[in-house]
Design a protein around this nucleic acid. Structure first.
Lengths: 218, 218
DNA sequence: ATAAATTATTAGACTAATCTAAATATTTAT
DNA sequence: ATAAATATTTAGATTAGTCTAATAATTTAT
């Protein structure tokens, strides 16, 4: 059994390592809103519990056991986000903080029933895949709008940034999951992208940064 | 904002004081599974925060602010219990521990949406009233079976004891909420009660203790 | 290849919540 | 009304997680 805090460290290491790259102390401190010294302390503890492989001055990766826990926290987080949006009608930019708390409710049975209640959703409200009860994750072929060429189109299927202001911005431009976009022009001097949504006449322009953070399937 | 632990103390004081009677250190220690010394420490802290009125060697009562928080924790607990039983199909003896965790999720908006989602239930799965968002509580005229006379009948509407074994026992005897019982006989030597459920032929016998813990309306 | 800059770790201290053991109040029984 | 029993509080220590300041390792730049 892990504490709330331990679960957050494991989840963050999982997300930062994207597979298996070692994660640095400072990276963790930045995301967990804490100090490097605190991170070092916690890494020692998690290492003793054999949830991570930790080499001083080098970095940290998850062990198999640690990864299992991390994936489970991610599963819980995404299922609760889905619940909040689909059942309680919250908007996609409102659910993150609540899910951060709900993800630490410990009962496995509860999460599995919730999963069943919602008919086993595969993606959360931001398009991120929801691991199943065995930790299996569906992987879609996502790519950012910034990698499309002029005249290419795609269906918005995920986002790489989850901050409420960014999500509200997308909502305002109708750049929501499921909508189809087509790239009309890529401006040479700043790589900003001009595109249309759902075949509309209306052309909208988004920055290169934004284009990197919106994921499409073709 | 209170910690998890502070909320548990306030909730327990609220339940033990049944209105406004002062609660003792040892009573709290027993229910909170902790030691009297720890309780004293926490009472000092809650007193400084003006959530309780605490007099050394005498006892503790809630302030108005403390009571508001306590009622809100109770509201959250009972709404989540209702959710677990009505939406996720848990049984009434399975939900307590999960609700103990869920009740500490802080968002007020979340609880209010949950309330709306379930269409504002008035009672939880054990017949306890669910306070509304303003802290108002519906009070029913409950009395224990032990106070009925021979030939009197009533509808089971609540329980005074929430332990899984007791709830499972009631389920086995079909003594579930909503069922009608009639007292056939009260044995003189131990006050055990013989009764029928839903007009059945079948007579069942329960101890005086059990009869005290089952609440009926007439 | 060495100095400077960056990154990470250790040392020592703090807070919240808890504990045991000792001391003190209160209540009960004679 | 006093002794014994019970209930409560204080004193001092412990654990988890965090912090700042000082130190050490590593990387980068010259």
């Amino acid at each position: 059994m892990q504490t709330f805090t331990e679960e957050n460290y494991l989840k963050t290491i999982y997300k930062l390592s994207e597979g298996s790259a070692p994660v640095s102390t400072n990276q963790l401190a930045a995301i967990l809103n804490t100090k490097a010294a605190s991170v070092t302390d916690m890494l020692k503890k998690l290492s003793e519990k054999k949830l991570i492989d930790y080499t001083r001055y080098y970095g940290v990766t998850l062990t198999e056991v640690g990864k299992k826990i991390a994936v489970d926290v991610v599963r819980r987080h995404r299922l609760w986000e889905y619940f909040l949006v689909e059942k309680l009608n919250f908007k996609w930019d409102e659910v993150h903080d609540m899910a951060e708390e709900l993800e630490h409710i410990s009962s496995t049975e509860l999460v599995d029933r919730l999963d069943q209640f919602m008919d086993y959703p595969a993606y959360d409200p931001h398009g991120d895949p929801i691991p199943d009860k065995h930790g299996r994750i569906k992987h879609h072929e996502f790519k950012p709008i910034s990698q499309l060429d002029v005249d290419e189109s795609g269906v918005i299927s995920g986002v790489r940034e989850h901050s409420p202001p960014f999500l509200q911005y997308l909502e305002k431009l109708n750049l929501m999951l499921g909508n189809q976009i087509r790239v009309i022009e890529i401006l040479a001097y700043d790589q900003s992208v001009v595109l249309t949504v759902n075949q509309s006449e209306n052309k909208i322009s988004i920055s290169k940064e934004a284009a990197k953070n919106i994921l499409v399937t073709s």
